[in-house]
C-alpha cells in the first residue's frame, strides 16, 4: 500500500513525465500539425502556440496530401516498396526457414559447424561488403532492376538462426508419423512445420517488412530509374525538388510513416517481445 506521501510523489512524477513527453514529441506534433498547412500559414504560425495545432477543417485541409499523391510518383513508390517487401518476405521465409529447419532437425554432415558459422556471420557489419555487393550487381548488369535489388537481401543469418531456435523444440514424433503417411519432407515443412510455428513466421515477416520499408543505403545504390524507387528513396527525390513546399515535405514523411505505425500497432506484442528478447538472450 502506498502512503499518502508516496502517492503525491507518484503524481508529481507522472506530471513531470507528461511534460517531458510533450517536449520530447514536439517535432512529431509540429510535423503532423503543419502537414495540413500551406507554407505561408506555417511561417505565420511559427511564433505562436498555433505552430503545434492543425488548421481548422476546411476544403483545402488535405491539399498537401492530395498534391503528393496525385502530382508526384509517391504512391507508385509506396506500392513498389510493398511489392518488394512481399517478395522478400516469401523468399526469406522459404530460404531461411528451410535452412533453419535443416540446422535444427536434419542430421547432415558438419551441421554443428554450420550453426557456428551462421552465428558468427551475425557479427559481420553489412556496411563492410556493401561496396562489393554494388560491384557484383553492376558487373552482371543488374543495376536498376528489381532482381538486382532483391537477390542480396534474401538470405539472412539472423533469421536462419531464429528459425533454428524455434524448430529445434518441435516434437520429432510428428515427423515420423507424417512420414508413414507418405508425406514428403518438403510437403511436411510447408503443411506442418510452418503452420506450427506461426509466431516466428510472423516475427520474421514483420522485421523483414520494416527492414525493406525503412532501408535507405542499398536501394539508393541500386535504383536510379524513378519508376523503381522505394518510398524512402522517392522521399529524397521529392523533398529535394525545389517545387516541393515545406507543408508537402511534412505530408510525405507523415504518409511514409503511416504503414509502419499500422504494423507496429498490429504486432506491437511480437515486436516488443523481439526487442526485449534480443536484450535478455544476449545479455
Amino acid at each position: 500500500m502506498l502512503t499518502k506521501k508516496q502517492k503525491t510523489a507518484n503524481w508529481i512524477l507522472v506530471i513531470i513525465l507528461l511534460i517531458a513527453s510533450l517536449f520530447f514529441l514536439f517535432p512529431v506534433i509540429w510535423m503532423l500539425a503543419n502537414s495540413f498547412k500551406g507554407d505561408a500559414a506555417i511561417t505565420a504560425d511559427m511564433n505562436t502556440i498555433k505552430a503545434f495545432i492543425p488548421p481548422a477543417l476546411s476544403g483545402n485541409f488535405f491539399d498537401n496530401y492530395i498534391t503528393i499523391l496525385t502530382d508526384t510518383k509517391f504512391l507508385k513508390y509506396m506500392v513498389n516498396t510493398l511489392f518488394y517487401a512481399a517478395i522478400l518476405i516469401v523468399l526469406g521465409i522459404i530460404v531461411n526457414g528451410l535452412a533453419g529447419y535443416a540446422l535444427a532437425k536434419i542430421k547432415f554432415p558438419f551441421r554443428e559447424r554450420w550453426v557456428l558459422i551462421i552465428l558468427l556471420l551475425q557479427i559481420v557489419p553489412m556496411e563492410t561488403i556493401l561496396t562489393i555487393h554494388f560491384l557484383m550487381i553492376a558487373k552482371v548488369g543488374l543495376l536498376n532492376t528489381v532482381i538486382g535489388y532483391i537477390l542480396p537481401m534474401i538470405v539472412n543469418p539472423f533469421n536462419i538462426f531464429l528459425f533454428r531456435q524455434v524448430f529445434i523444440s518441435l516434437p520429432d514424433d510428428v515427423y515420423e508419423a507424417a512420414q508413414l503417411d507418405f508425406c514428403g519432407p518438403l510437403k511436411y515443412f510447408f503443411t506442418m512445420v510452418l503452420p506450427m510455428s506461426k509466431t516466428v513466421v510472423a516475427t520474421v515477416s514483420v522485421f523483414t517488412f520494416l527492414n525493406v520499408w525503412n532501408d535507405y543505403l542499398w536501394p539508393s545504390l541500386v535504383f536510379t530509374s524513378s519508376d523503381l524507387l522505394t518510398a524512402q528513396i522517392g522521399l529524397n527525390s521529392i523533398t529535394s525538388n525545389d517545387n516541393t513546399t515545406m507543408g508537402q515535405t511534412l505530408a510525405v514523411i507523415t504518409l511514409i510513416t503511416i504503414p509502419v505505425i499500422i504494423i507496429y500497432s498490429l504486432f506491437s506484442k511480437q515486436i516488443v517481445e523481439g526487442v526485449t528478447s534480443t536484450g535478455s538472450k544476449e545479455g
Binding site: A99, F108, V124
Partner: peptide
C-alpha cells in the same frame, strides 16, 4: 541429401552474397 537440399538454397546465397 535432404539436409543439403534444405540448406542448399541458403548456402548458395550465403556463398555469393556473404
Amino acid at each position: 541429401i535432404m539436409g543439403m537440399a534444405f540448406f542448399g538454397p541458403a548456402l548458395v546465397l550465403l556463398t555469393i552474397f556473404l
